[in-house]
Structures are given as structure tokens and as C-alpha cells.
Amino acid sequence: MKLLRLGPQGHERPALLTDDGEVRDLSALTPDIDGAFLASDGVDRVRAALAADTLPALDPAGLRVGAPVARPGKVVCVGLNYRDHAEETGAPVPKRPVVFMKDPSTVVGPYDQVLIPRGSVKTDWEVELAVVIGREARYLDSPAEAAACVAGYAISNDVSEREFQLEYSAQWDLGKSCETFNPLGPWLVTTDEAGDPQALGLRLSVNGVARQNGTTKNMIFGVAHIVWYLSQYMVLHPGDVINTGTPAGVALGLPGAPYLRAGDVVELSIDGLGTQRQTFENA
């Protein structure tokens, strides 16, 4: 299933995109698509209501598409998780996942405007597979247990300011947590429909020029390993989001370092998870 949220920021309505392209209203089942919805078997309730044909149609015309998950408790990121990306940035290939946190308030809709921070000269793009947690993950015994804790997947743009990230602090937070720096969506695609998370193509272009073209099969640490690993150090709650890393092709590693400027348009896609499109403007 493809779950989404439609409407003005802060007032989105939960919805379902059916296989035949119809949009159904989920408001009678839940006030929102969030951690509480996922923790209370919300996906199964939607599936049952769809089978019973009790979900009313919703006209999406003119409605903004919000992030498919409301108010994630945390956004956990894994850096340097593709060998080619580590190589292009001059970093060693990590022996353990490189983990950092991103301010959850950075999460915006997939077509929302992204703001280049004041003073920024190195704002960069990163197409990533996002994992949305559907069941608490705490001290999992093995990666094999991870699948039961995942609600689904979405596209994430882990926007980064490289000067803030790499030159202003020993940690990466400053360059990762600027406002609007995590477009997410358009859909939360449930695990049964998304298929193998290690067999998805990722693509990103800037102003129509292809910049990233990779596949999740080239992750150094796969989704199951990441969820298991993180559960050893923090409790993952329903609604939490994990950004799993980006393949090569970011501005930091390209000749001339073509960082983003006001007016630039970034388009992203992942197989089966839809597309994003953002225009970047100055804050």
C-alpha cells in the first residue's frame, strides 16, 4: 500500500493511493499517519477497510503532498554507506555504520521548497532510501528480526551543508539540521509492496542533469543490519525514520563542486517509491 498525507502544512489529511490510482480518505480510521497509527496496527486496519470498500474517495486536485509520516520522533542517518560515495569524498570505507542524528523538524513534503541557509556556499543533495519504523526495535537479537519492525519505505533527500557539516564542527549536526533539509515522500510504501529493499534503483538530477544513479544493492550495510545495529544503542519507536545513505554523485565529490544555488531544481526517484521535486531558494 501507498500511504500519504495531503493538505496544508500542519493540517494534512491521511490518505491511501490505491493500485488503480484512486485516492481514499483515511480520516475515519486515524487522525494522522504517525507513530501512534503505526503502533496500533494502523496498516492492517487500512488494509481491512480497503478490502471492505469502506474508504471514501478523496479528490487530491490542488492539495499539497506532505511528508507521509507526521512528526517522526527522530531521524537517524547512516553516512558513507555506499563504497563509491565514501571514495568520492575521500573517506575510508567504514567498518561499522557511521551514525548521526538529524533534527526531525527538518522533515518536509516531497515537493516543498527547500531553503538554502543564510551564509551557505556548500548546500548539497543526497538521494536516500528512508526506512520507517512500525514496531519498537530494542536490542534485537539478529538482523533477521529487523523486517518485523519496519512499516515501509520512502524517498528521502538528506540535504546537507558541507561547510557547516565538515568545517565548523567535529560533529555533523550543523550541516544536517537546517530548516527544510529533509524532504520525505511522496508515499510511505509498505514492505509488502516495496519488495526487496536491497534491489532498488536510486536517481537524482539537478536542473535536468543526472547526478546520482545507484542501487541499494551496493549498500555497505543493508537495511536489516542497520535496524539491528541501531537497536543495540537506541530504542527505535514507531514513526522514527532512518536515512540509509547515498550513492556517489553528490556535489562534494564532483569536479568543480557544483553546490546548489537559489533557483536550482532537484528531482529524485527510487524504484516503486515515486518521485520528488524541490526548488531551492535562499532563506
Rank of each mutant, 00 (worst) to 15 (best):
K102C: 05
R135I: 02
L3E: 13
P110Y: 13
D34M: 02
I155A: 00
V99F: 03
Q198A: 15
T123P: 15
D271F: 14
T275L: 07
D112E: 09
G21Q: 10
I220M: 08
P110S: 11
T190C: 07
V108T: 14
I116K: 09
L174F: 15
P183H: 09
G256P: 02
L63R: 15
R118T: 12
A48T: 09
L273G: 03
L268V: 06
R71D: 01
E179M: 12
P8A: 01
A224D: 09
I242E: 02
G66K: 12
L3M: 07
P60N: 06
T123L: 04
P186K: 14
G222F: 08
L252Q: 07
H225L: 05
N282K: 14
A61S: 15
L58A: 03
V65A: 12
S160R: 01
Q198L: 15
P117N: 05
A251Q: 08
Q165K: 15
A52D: 08
E161N: 08
V43W: 11
Q165G: 11
L80E: 00
T123I: 01
L26I: 11
G208P: 03
H225A: 05
A144R: 13
G10I: 01
Y168D: 15
Y139H: 14
G10L: 03
L204D: 01
G256S: 05
A170L: 15
T89R: 14
V23T: 14
T18E: 06
Y111T: 13
G175E: 04
F280V: 04
V121L: 05
V235Y: 08
N207K: 10
V98F: 06
E167W: 15
A67M: 06
F221D: 02
P110D: 04
R64Q: 03
Y233G: 13
S27I: 11
V76H: 01
W187L: 03
D41N: 13
T215I: 12
D84V: 07
V65N: 10
N243I: 11
T275W: 11
V189Q: 08
H237W: 13
A154N: 03
G239M: 05
E87D: 08
H237S: 14
P143I: 05
S156T: 08
R71H: 02
A199K: 15
P92W: 04
L80Y: 04
T244S: 06
A39S: 13
A91H: 11
T191Q: 14
T106G: 08
D158K: 11
W228F: 03
S142A: 10
Y233C: 13
A147G: 07
A36C: 08
A52L: 03
Y229L: 00
T190G: 09
G201Q: 13
G109W: 11
M1I: 07
V75S: 05
M101V: 11
Q232I: 11
G272T: 09
G62H: 05
L63I: 01
L204N: 06
H85R: 07
H11S: 09
P183D: 01
F100Q: 10
P238T: 03
F181D: 02
P97N: 00
A39Y: 09
R45Y: 06
T275K: 12
A91N: 12
S156W: 08
I155P: 10
P31M: 01
G263R: 00
P68S: 10
E87K: 14
T216G: 10
T279H: 11
P68C: 04
S231R: 00
S27D: 03
A262P: 09
A248H: 08
I133A: 00
G73P: 05
